[in-house]
Design a protein around this nucleic acid. Structure first.
Lengths: 361, 361
DNA sequence: TCTCCGCCTGTTATCGTTAACTTATTCAGC
DNA sequence: GCTGAATAAGTTAACGATAACAGGCGGAGA
């Protein structure tokens, strides 16, 4: 009679039951080495009957790799992170690695905790997609120095042995802003950063750059909505930031005729604030978002935005990482920047009927 | 000279350097047992200098627990999952467990993979928040039978040794629908399920129940938007489902005067479809969502919806799980159902000015 | 002086798996 | 019949950490 013990079944248990040694069982389980067909059958039967699950700890300890990759993201519930994850997963699954995700809620402390957890549990490599911070960068450097393969997505941090994937958000921000300028706008607000803090945000730099290039001056009053706390960031509820920011802009004596929002959710908040105020989009105020979340094509008006190839970034980061894991962890760093694409929709259309209006998908 | 080897530093390495045995180093690292203050200092100094990271595999193997919990969710990029995760994390962190998240993208196969990965890597327990499926349920049962502590959130699966946390979505759906009926609506559509598949969705059952209780008949034409494929579900892009579903409803000869959407994103899609068609909300069509995502209070009109205490569910599931982990894994199952709350906003308001309109937050 | 207990450290064995090596057995080819 | 390759197992020793036990030492109390 085969028992179903509370203590997890081990190779030795199966071996005893099947009248072989645990080495043979191991060979069967891993499909390696020579095992007689009959023996294999018998062992498999017993293993199944006993509901065997292999012990990844022991296995990993002995083999010195776990076939596991960690992904650290700051914010779940964010279409960007979701799409990134999807890309990462696709590649990992194809190469039969397991993905464990750690969330850091955008705080440096939790970032570090996530790194440590993954390193302690001997993930074979780590993909980091959180925003950079002093503390976290230091720990990251230690990890990389000690040989942990790391691949970074859109993170402002450089290390000779960590690969880097990013989107050209500087250019994206530049193009979004230029688009507004080309449409004749001269008073263009930015929602979603504080002036000081925003300098680390490429899309905001692109905004500044575009203004400068076109000979427009920067009006500090028109930059709204940043959180001043440096190590704490909000979750996905950035439409609140967009709403509040827009309200502030509308209260200005000379309100902007266009706004560039840090991301689509912020843009959505702003969009609703504008509607509430009884103004029309884009006639009274034009608006551009960033990220091209799925919702952006379902709002009314539909949202002009900048698309970055998110899934591709995830795939690329995963590929870089796997190459490093399976190659030399200290090999030269690889870097790849993806182009962004301005997607023009109704929220910045030149001539525009009133909203709501009838039909037209 | 202390080297920084490519091979990870072990206790033995530190021990050699600090002229003690690895047992002493272990005691220092874990702050357990007696260690002379001077020795402790010396060991710590060496450990830091060598950039020691403990090996969770070896540690876990020996101690037979990893202080790690796995969370399986179907869909990242979903405010519901995010909030749930937040609740789970809060509790785990307070009791110093590490959380690893696995995404299953709503397929049974990936669900099973996630369970296996977590079980293989000897997570101390698993929280499951994905939708039930035949295959996955079977594997889940095996795991629980073999002693893995499991706690379920809103999953249609029962087992004597797995705790269960859920929201009363039947009642939530009932109340949402009743709210519409009370407001005088008689033709009420449902967006987001197929009639057959929807029977597993409590909030849809609540809808049916409410119609029945109020003597209204179910019109199959008014139930739209389900995916027929049973093991595959879409990601977050359910606003598309909402949009398309609403378009179908609007094409009916007798279109509904109100719709209940399976979740807020679906509702948002529907909302935009209605606006596109030049109809007014709630005057022409009233609409109710589900989940109360943050965005729901920032749309125009703001969205009537059903709030479920999401974070609390996460916390509760985590607490149940930890009790099971630290107690008896085969103890009697605990169950807890949270009440939902109907949040009435503009999209179902009785009398309503046109949108967009001026002011009023 | 002797005993006992609190401190500090070391020794041993083990968690479950597998790499590397060893031992048989079989059988084709000369 | 002999050689050597292919097949089919078993044996041993780790992987890195720690629980359990075993001293040794010093000092308080009898």
């Amino acid at each position: 009679m085969i028992r179903k013990p509370k203590k997890p079944v081990t190779l030795a248990d199966i071996a005893a039951e099947a009248q072989v040694t645990s080495m043979t069982v191991s060979r069967v389980i891993n499909n390696s080495g020579y095992v007689h067909a009959e023996t294999r059958e018998r062992v498999l039967r017993v293993a199944r009957a006993m509901n065997y699950r292999r012990n990844g700890l022991a296995r990993g300890l002995k083999r010195q790799r776990t076939e596991t990759v960690g992904l650290v993201i700051g914010d779940i519930a964010n279409p960007f992170a979701a799409e990134l994850t999807r890309g990462v997963r696709e590649v990992l699954e194809a190469r039969s690695y397991t993905l464990f995700i750690c969330i850091s809620e955008h705080t440096a402390k939790e970032d570090v905790q996530a790194f440590d957890s993954l390193a302690d549990h001997r993930a074979d490599g780590i993909i980091v997609a959180t925003r950079a911070s002093q503390t976290a960068n230091e720990r990251l450097e230690e990890l990389i120095d000690s040989g942990v393969p790391v691949s970074l997505i859109g993170r402002d941090f450089h290390h000779p042995h960590a690969d880097l994937v990013s989107a050209d958000n500087l250019k994206g921000g530049y193009e979004a802003t230029s688009h507004l300028i080309d449409a004749g706008h001269r008073r263009i607000g930015f929602i979603g950063v504080s002036l000081t803090q925003g300098l680390r945000l490429r899309r905001f730099q692109g905004y500044l750059e575009a203004l400068k290039q076109h000979g427009l001056s920067v009006d500090e009053q028109m930059i709204v909505g940043g959180h001043e706390a440096s190590d704490q960031m909000p979750g996905y509820s950035t439409e609140e930031m967009g709403y509040d920011g827009m309200v502030k802009l509308l209260e200005l004596e000379q309100r902007p005729t266009a706004v560039f929002a840090r991301n689509d959710f912020t843009a959505l908040g702003a969009l609703n604030a504008i509607k509430r105020a009884g103004l029309r989009i884009p006639d009274d105020i034009a608006i551009v978002g960033y990220d091209d979340v799925p919702l952006a094509q379902h709002t009314s008006p539909t949202l002009t935005t900048v698309r970055q190839p998110t899934r591709e970034q995830g795939q690329c980061a995963a590929e870089f990482l796997l190459n490093r894991i399976e190659g030399d962890s200290e090999q030269e760093r690889v870097e790849r920047t993806f182009e962004c694409e301005l997607i023009i929709r109704e929220s910045t259309a030149q001539k525009q009927a009133d909203f709501p209006r009838s039909e037209a998908v």
